[in-house]
Computed example of a mutant assay.
Amino acid sequence: MASIQYYDVILKPLVTEKSMAGMAEKRYCFLVHPEANKTMIKEAVEKMFAGAKVKSVNTMNRPTKTKRRGMTVGQTAKSKKAIVQLTADSKEIEIFQGL
Score class of each variant (00 low, 15 high):
A36V: 08
T59G: 05
E94Y: 08
T72E: 13
A36R: 01
A88H: 02
S3M: 08
E35I: 04
L86S: 05
L99T: 03
H33Q: 04
D8W: 03
E92L: 06
K65Y: 06
A44T: 06
K81H: 07
G70I: 03
C29G: 07
T72A: 12
K12A: 07
Y7N: 15
R27N: 15
K81W: 01
A2R: 12
P34Q: 07
K42G: 03
A52M: 06
A88T: 14
V45G: 00
G74R: 11
S19D: 08
D8R: 06
A2G: 04
K80A: 02
K26D: 14
T66I: 15
I41N: 00
G74I: 06
K78V: 15
K12T: 09
L31R: 11
K55I: 06
H33W: 02
T39D: 10
T76M: 09
A21Q: 11
T72G: 11
R68A: 11
V73I: 11
I93E: 00
K47G: 05
A21G: 08
A44C: 06
T59N: 03
V15P: 04
R69Q: 14
P63W: 04
L14I: 09
G98T: 15
N37Q: 01
E92N: 15
R68D: 10
S19N: 11
N58L: 10
L14N: 07
K67T: 14
V32C: 02
K81R: 12
K65W: 02
T39G: 14
E92T: 15
S3K: 13
R62Y: 10
G51H: 02
A77L: 10
K91W: 02
T76A: 07
I83H: 00
A88Y: 09
K42S: 10
K18S: 10
V15T: 12
L31T: 09
N37P: 00
E92W: 07
F30Y: 11
V9A: 00
R62P: 02
V9W: 01
T64Q: 15
E25K: 09
I41S: 01
N37W: 00
Y6W: 12
N58T: 14
K65V: 13
T72N: 14
V15D: 01
C29T: 13
S79A: 12
G51M: 04
R62W: 04
M71W: 12
L11C: 07
R68H: 15
L11K: 15
N37E: 07
A77S: 12
F96A: 01
V73L: 09
